[in-house]
């Protein structure tokens, strides 16, 4: 909690800078209006109220974003097409499905890799190489192709999310499953434990701290995947669609509100994973 004060100061400074930037960036429109009305250019005192409450500002001010965010979260019924809860839920459900798929894939590949030398040598370099490819760039193609095969909605977005989240889990789990040291492995060997017993009783429990660290990275990545996956479907539903339709119609306040909603969702998802992590590690006696 020692850092609470500094964090608040930094946030306050950011807010002040934001207001200053909003006044500066939005002033062009006000001056333009004044020229058109052939009126005197407004003084600074008149300028400020004219810039911080514009309908379509270049940069919306924090209070505009917050009021839009609150209004479209709590002010509407959650089935309304304008409700951020509705769009947020669409994105979150794709994120979660993709996250589960990616995590399972990552764990299974990791188990394969530690048990099979050929798999280790051949899959690992390609898994690493696959991450230097901008996978998000393939997103529109996956959507369109799956659409032409008749698969729509949740699954294509979830596949993109899974693709983004499997890698952190794979790397973390390979490290985690290899983390038991030789003494422990030897002990199980003297007990005559089979490979699967070693896996279930030693390797998997030992890998839990690594798993949760990767899960936190993975869930943030899946949210990005789900949002980007919504872009090429033509702005129908989801937080990504809110971003896209906002950018089509110049609704900057809507874009910023969707962005903040995405940020809050990301923070919430990571917080949930950390909460599960703390509980699990405590019960397993591994809490640090």
């Amino acid at each position: 909690m020692r850092s609470l004060g500094p964090v608040l100061v930094v946030l306050a400074v950011i807010t002040v800078l934001w207001y200053a930037a909003a006044v500066w960036l939005n002033s062009a429109w006000v001056y333009d209006q004044a020229v058109r009305a052939e009126a005197e250019p407004p003084s600074f005192g008149q300028l400020v109220p004219l810039t911080i409450n514009q309908e379509r500002p270049v940069l919306p001010t924090p209070h505009q974003v917050v009021s839009e965010l609150v209004g479209s979260t709590f002010g509407m019924s959650i089935t309304s097409k304008k409700s951020l809860v509705y769009h947020g839920w669409i994105t979150v459900s794709a994120t979660l499905l993709g996250f589960v798929m990616g995590t399972l894939l990552g764990i299974m590949l990791a188990v394969g890799i530690i048990h099979n030398r050929a798999m280790d040598l051949s899959v690992m370099p390609w898994a690493i190489a696959s991450q230097t490819i901008p996978i998000l760039a393939i997103a529109p193609m996956i959507i369109v192709v799956m659409n032409s095969m008749g698969v729509q909605g949740l699954v294509p977005k979830a596949i993109i999310s899974a693709f983004l989240s499997f890698f952190p889990v794979l790397v973390g789990m390979v490290k985690g499953l290899r983390s038991p040291d030789h003494m422990q492995l030897d002990l199980l060997a003297t007990y005559g434990a089979t490979k699967s017993q070693t896996l279930w009783k030693l390797r998997l429990p030992a890998s839990m701290p690594y798993l949760f660290t990767s899960l936190k990275v993975g869930i943030a990545a899946s949210l990005v995947g789900a949002i980007v996956g919504e872009l090429p479907t033509g702005a129908v539903k989801g937080l990504g669609a809110r971003l896209l339709s906002g950018s089509y119609y110049g609704q900057t306040v809507q874009i910023w509100a969707a962005l903040f909603a995405a940020a809050l969702v990301a923070a919430g998802l990571v917080a949930i994973v950390s909460w599960v992590e703390r509980g699990t590690l405590k019960r397993m006696g591994m809490a640090r």
Partner: peptide, 25 residues
């Protein structure tokens, strides 16, 4: 102490979302 938690938070956000705003600017 002030910037790092904020930086860590922002690093985990879906930053691609600001793309439409920056394209507009």
């Amino acid at each position: 102490r002030g910037l790092l938690p904020v930086g860590n938070f922002v690093a985990a956000l879906p930053i691609v979302g600001i793309a439409p705003i920056l394209v507009m600017w």
